[in-house]
Design a protein around this nucleic acid. Structure first.
Length: 569
RNA sequence: CGGGGCGUAGCGCAGAGGUAGCGCACUCGCUUGGGGUGCGAGGGGCCGUGGGUUCAAGUCCCGCCGCCCCGACCA
C-alpha cells in the first residue's frame, strides 16, 4: 500500500481529551478518530490491526473446535425477558423501538440469541457438543466511557458459546477454550495473566479473566508471591495476616461518648486504638430487604461477594435517610446491637473478635466491649471483604501481591443458567430430556489494540509486535525527487511484494525528518530506509523499530534478512 | 446520577466589554532533502447553542447541549 493512497492522518500534538498513552498514540498515529463520547471510527491503519488480531483469533478458535457464525445485533426483548435479563441488565442495555413499537436491545452479548438458536436446532445428544462463535460490534451504554477504545459504548468483540451434555464435558470444553486463549494472547505478543474472576452480569459458576499486565490497567490483580494463585480484586480472598483471637475474659458492655466521630479513622484517633478493634456496620439494600454487613474496621466490604452470598439481584449501599430510619442515628453510628428484623451478615474477620467497638445506633456514641452472641446474633458468616495487600494467600499462606491489568478476555462456566431459563434441552440415549450445559468466552478485540500499545511504546511512538502490526515493513525513500532513491525504492517494493510481505510504502513528498518521525510514531516493526548516503555504498538500511538496530545491506540480502528478523522479533 | 473543569480555524492554544489572534496543519512560489528545513504570499471562524444585560458581548448573567476528569457502577 502506498501512503499517498490511503488515510494515515498523523498528528504532531497530543489530543487535548486523551489521558492514557495508548489513547494519545492511537489518535496521533491516525488509528482512530472520535465521533462522540465512547464512539470511535477505526481508520485504515486501525482496521488493518483489527483484522490481524481477528485472523489469529479465528485460527485458534477453529483449532479449538469452534465454528464461526454471525448473529443479529438487534435482539427482540422477548428473549431477554425469557432469560430474566431485560430487567437485570439495567441501563447498560441500549433499548430501541421499531415503527410497530416493538422493543429491541442492541446486543451487548448474545447468550439469549445463541441459546434460542441452539434449542431450536439441536434436539439430540448426537449433535453435542457444539461450540459457536462470532466477531461482531457490541453495544453497551457504559456509565462512563473513557480512555479511548479501552472502555467504549461500541466495540468489537469475539463472543463464543459452547453447549455440552453435562458438567464433565462442559469442563473439558472450558479447558480447551482456556488453552486456546493462552495461545491467542501469546501469539498477539502480549504479556498477560489468567486470573479467577467474579461472573458479574453474565452469571455462571466460575470464570477466568485474561489480563494484559499494565500499570495503567483499570483492574487490580491479586496474585500470590509463591504459588499459582491469581484473582481479580472483586473475586480474591485471603487470610488475615493477624488473626484477632479471642481473649479469655469478656468485659462489660459500655457506652462511650464520641461527639461527631463518624469514620473509622476518626474513631481510632479519638480512642487511640487500632482499626482492628472496631467492627464496621454497613447497611445495604438487597433487592427490597435491608441487611447489615459487618467487617473488621481495617477492611472494606466487597459488594460483589456480599451479593453472591445473599444471592440477590441488586445490592446497593443504603441511602442516608434510610439509615436514619433504620438505626435512629445518622450515618457513622450504626451497630449490630439491638437490631431487629435486619439480617446480620458478618465477615470472617469478625468471627473471632471479642470486646470490640461498634456504633450504638445513637448519635455521638459508640459501644465498647461488644461481644458476639452475648450482645447480638449473626445470621450468616462468610467472606464478604475486599482483600488487603497485607493478607496472605488462601492456598499456601505466602504474601499476596497487587498489580494492575487490562481485561482482554473472559471465559465463563455458565452451567445451565441460560439453557434452563430458555429451556434448551436434548434427548439422551435413554430418550430422556436433559438440559444443556453451557460455557461462554469473550475477547475484547478493539481493546487489545490499546492494551498492546500500553505494553510497548517509547518516547517516539508505538512499537507493534509483528503479529498485529498493520504492516510488517515500511519502505521510506528519504527523497522521492531523487531518481536513484525513487527507483531503488520502487524495485525493493516490487521484490518484497512478490514475497507476499505486508508493506507500507511512504511515497509522500515530505522531508526526511517528517517521514522518519511518522515512521517511529506508527510503529511498523521493520523499516527500509533509502537515502543518498548509504546508496553511495550500494546499500540500503534495515531498521528494527523495537531494538533500534540498523543493518546496512544490499538489495539481494533484503529478503533473507527480513525473513530472519521477522521470525526472531 | 453527584462533584470539578473545558467548549474560539482541521489540531494545540491565547484573547476577559470597543475591528478575532498565535503555533502547527492546509494552498501557491522558491528553498531544503538522513530526525518535524528556511523564506515569502494566501485560504479558512455564527467564538458550542438559545435567551438576557449593554450604545456595543468570545468577553458579563441565565438556560440548554457537548467533551474531559474524579466518584458511584461495570467486560
Amino acid at each position: 500500500m502506498k501512503w499517498s493512497q490511503t488515510l494515515i492522518p498523523t498528528l504532531k500534538e497530543n489530543p487535548a481529551d486523551a489521558e492514557l498513552i495508548s489513547h494519545k498514540l492511537m489518535v496521533r498515529a491516525g488509528i482512530i478518530r472520535k465521533l462522540s463520547s465512547g464512539i470511535y471510527s477505526l481508520l485504515p491503519l486501525g482496521f488493518k490491526i483489527l483484522q490481524k488480531i481477528e485472523k489469529i483469533i479465528r485460527e485458534e478458535m477453529e483449532y479449538a473446535g469452534a465454528s464461526e457464525l454471525l448473529l443479529p445485533i438487534l435482539s427482540p426483548s422477548e428473549l431477554w425477558k425469557e432469560s430474566g435479563r431485560w430487567d437485570v441488565y439495567g441501563k447498560e442495555l441500549i433499548r430501541i423501538k421499531d415503527r410497530q413499537n416493538r422493543e429491541f436491545a442492541l446486543g451487548p452479548t448474545h447468550e439469549e440469541i445463541i441459546t434460542d438458536l441452539v434449542r431450536k436446532e439441536i434436539k439430540t445428544y448426537k449433535k453435542l457438543p457444539i461450540n459457536l462463535y462470532q466477531i461482531q460490534i457490541k453495544f453497551r451504554d457504559e456509565i462512563r466511557p473513557r480512555f479511548g477504545v479501552m472502555r467504549a459504548k461500541e466495540f468489537m468483540m469475539k463472543d463464543g458459546y459452547s453447549f455440552d451434555r453435562d458438567e464433565a464435558n462442559a469442563e473439558r470444553t472450558y479447558k480447551k477454550m482456556y488453552d486456546g486463549y493462552y495461545k491467542i494472547f501469546s501469539r498477539l505478543g502480549l504479556k498477560f495473566k489468567a486470573v479467577e474472576a467474579d461472573t458479574g452480569a453474565i452469571g455462571g459458576s466460575f470464570s477466568h479473566e485474561f489480563m494484559v499486565l499494565a500499570d495503567s490497567g483499570e483492574e487490580v490483580i491479586v496474585s500470590c508471591s509463591k504459588c499459582e494463585y491469581a484473582a481479580n480484586l472483586e473475586k480474591a480472598s485471603g487470610k488475615n495476616s493477624d488473626v484477632t483471637s479471642k481473649t479469655g475474659k469478656t468485659e462489660n458492655l459500655q457506652k462511650i461518648n464520641t461527639p461527631n466521630i463518624k469514620t473509622v479513622e476518626e474513631l481510632t484517633k479519638f480512642l487511640n486504638c487500632s482499626a482492628k478493634n472496631l467492627v464496621k456496620t454497613i447497611i445495604c439494600k438487597a433487592d427490597k430487604e435491608y441487611i447489615a454487613a459487618l467487617v473488621r474496621g481495617d477492611y472494606e466490604i466487597n459488594i460483589n461477594k456480599l451479593k453472591n452470598i445473599l444471592g440477590c439481584c441488586e445490592l446497593t449501599m443504603a441511602q442516608a435517610e434510610d439509615i436514619r430510619k433504620l438505626t435512629n442515628a445518622p450515618i457513622g453510628f450504626a451497630g449490630p446491637v439491638g437490631f431487629k428484623n435486619i439480617k446480620i451478615i458478618a465477615d470472617e474477620s469478625v468471627k473471632n473478635m471479642s470486646n470490640f467497638i461498634t456504633g450504638s445506633n445513637e448519635a455521638d456514641t459508640h459501644l465498647m466491649n461488644v461481644n458476639i452472641n452475648r450482645d447480638f446474633k449473626i445470621d450468616l458468616i462468610g467472606d464478604i471483604r475486599l482483600v488487603k495487600e497485607s493478607d496472605l494467600c488462601d492456598l499456601c499462606g505466602e504474601k499476596l501481591v497487587f498489580t494492575r491489568g487490562i481485561e482482554v478476555g473472559h471465559v465463563f462456566k455458565l452451567g445451565t443458567k441460560y439453557s434452563k431459563a430458555l429451556n434448551a434441552t436434548y434427548l439422551d440415549e435413554q430418550g430422556k430430556d436433559q438440559i444443556m450445559v453451557m460455557g461462554c468466552y469473550g475477547i475484547g478485540v478493539t481493546r487489545i489494540i490499546a492494551a498492546s500499545i500500553e505494553q510497548q511504546y517509547d518516547e517516539n511512538g508505538i512499537i507493534w509486535p509483528v503479529s498485529i502490526a498493520p504492516y510488517q515493513i515500511l519502505i521510506t525513500p528519504l527523497n522521492v525527487k531523487d531518481d536513484e532513491i525513487k527507483t531503488t525504492a520502487d524495485t525493493i517494493y516490487n521484490i518484497l511484494s512478490k514475497e507476499k510481505f505486508d508493506i507500507l510504502f511512504d511515497d509522500r513528498d515530505e522531508t526526511a525528518g517528517v517521514k522518519l518521525k511518522d515512521a517511529d510514531l506508527i510503529g511498523i516493526p521493520l523499516r527500509i530506509t533509502i537515502g543518498s548516503k548509504t546508496l553511495k555504498e550500494g546499500k540500503v538500511e534495515l531498521y528494527v523499530r523495537k531494538s533500534k538496530e540498523v543493518y546496512k545491506i544490499s538489495k539481494e540480502e533484503i529478503v533473507p534478512k527480513i525473513k530472519e528478523l521477522i521470525s526472531s522479533i
